[in-house]
């Protein structure tokens, strides 16, 4: 891979999120409409000036199928180009960014959602994620996969109180929520005098093997590959200048291991927006939620450079990294 010219600056004009432990008063479509209309208003846009929408949803959890079709309306996508990313929500932000980098328009709404409270048995719905021949016959879900991974980091004599699945207890595992996260991205010529929340400096993402038995789960391979991609393609220095890093992962031990792999400066703050329990999020869009938290840190002036890491899939099969800054740099 050769080093290339840094990508053109893309701005994040606005972000918005609707998060509730359990949203019983709004349908998923109403949540999508409320979030999309609010973020567009924050960005100074409306349906007439919005050019495209990139979505991410977890249809098996939400009980919708090809939900980009019924959700095109509430997301503001009717009469616009709508693309649904059938993978983690952090990929949607990357795709929205790439849409503008490619010259396909001057603004885009990125919106990701999941409403796990509508799944009568969340773990049962998750089990469909397992491949059908071996893994489903045994049984697998996010909690069990995270626990198997964490067993690589614990010794048998480690003190573990009330494990949900040894060695992980409830405090180690993410809290769930119903959530919609949205961001409006735009090319530099669309930024008004008030400036954007932040500029996107670069992104990298990579996927490891699906089979956990074929991976070294202690190595953070996709994260390292994503970081290398950012450095080589976007020219963004690895972690040296990051003030804040927001990390979404399947467990707190996985967050700690990812932070170690980043080789951050001692002053960098990891997950200042809250732990996996303090900042509830549905797994599918937890990475996108952390990206909004990193953007928020830049927007509030708490960080000049911030990054977000989304680890997704069983035991972190995939990793996405995005880097943001307050200044328009190339």
């Amino acid at each position: 891979m050769t080093t290339r010219t840094a990508p053109a600056p893309i701005a994040v004009l606005a972000t918005h999120e609707l998060v509730a432990p359990r949203e019983d008063h709004m349908s998923l479509e109403e949540m999508i409409f409320a979030c999309s209309s609010t973020v567009l208003k924050k960005a100074g846009l409306d349906h007439s000036t919005l050019e495209g929408v990139v979505m991410s949803g977890q249809d098996q959890i939400d009980g919708r199928v090809i939900s980009c079709m019924p959700s095109a309306g509430p997301a503001g996508g009717v009469g616009r180009d709508v693309t649904m990313i059938a993978s983690s929500g952090d990929h949607a932000l990357v795709y929205g960014w790439m849409r503008l980098l490619s010259g396909q328009g001057s603004n885009v709404l990125v919106i990701g959602w999941s409403k796990p409270s509508e799944s009568v048995s969340l773990a049962h719905s998750q089990s469909v994620s397992a491949e059908p021949f071996v893994l489903r016959a045994v049984g697998m879900n996010d909690t069990i996969a995270a626990s198997l991974q964490a067993s690589r980091w614990y010794t048998p004599d480690a003190p573990v109180e009330d494990p949900v699945s040894w060695p992980l207890g409830a405090e180690d595992l993410p809290a769930d929520a119903d959530a919609v996260y949205a961001a409006v991205l735009a090319t530099a010529d669309q930024v008004g005098p008030e400036g954007p929340i932040a500029w996107i400096r670069g992104a990298g993402w990579s996927t490891d093997q699906y089979d956990m038995g074929s991976r070294d789960l202690t190595e953070n391979t996709p994260l390292r590959q994503a970081l290398a991609q950012i450095e080589q393609i976007s020219g963004v220095p690895r972690a040296r200048t990051w003030d804040v890093v927001e990390i979404a992962a399947a467990s707190e031990p996985a967050v700690r291991r990812a932070a170690e792999a980043l080789d951050l400066p001692a002053t960098a703050r990891v997950n200042p927006s809250g732990s996996l329990r303090e900042r509830p999020a549905p797994a599918h869009v937890s990475g996108l939620g952390r990206m909004l938290a990193a953007l928020d840190a830049v927007g509030k002036g708490e960080a000049s450079h911030a990054a977000a890491v989304g680890l997704h899939g069983f035991a972190g099969q995939g990793a996405t990294v995005m880097v943001f800054s307050g200044e328009q740099e190339r």
Partner: peptide, 15 residues
């Protein structure tokens, strides 16, 4: 054994 867990929480359709 390369990794393991003992599950203490019930999950539907699992033991």
């Amino acid at each position: 054994i390369e990794m393991f867990t003992v599950v203490y929480e019930p999950f539907r359709n699992l033991p």
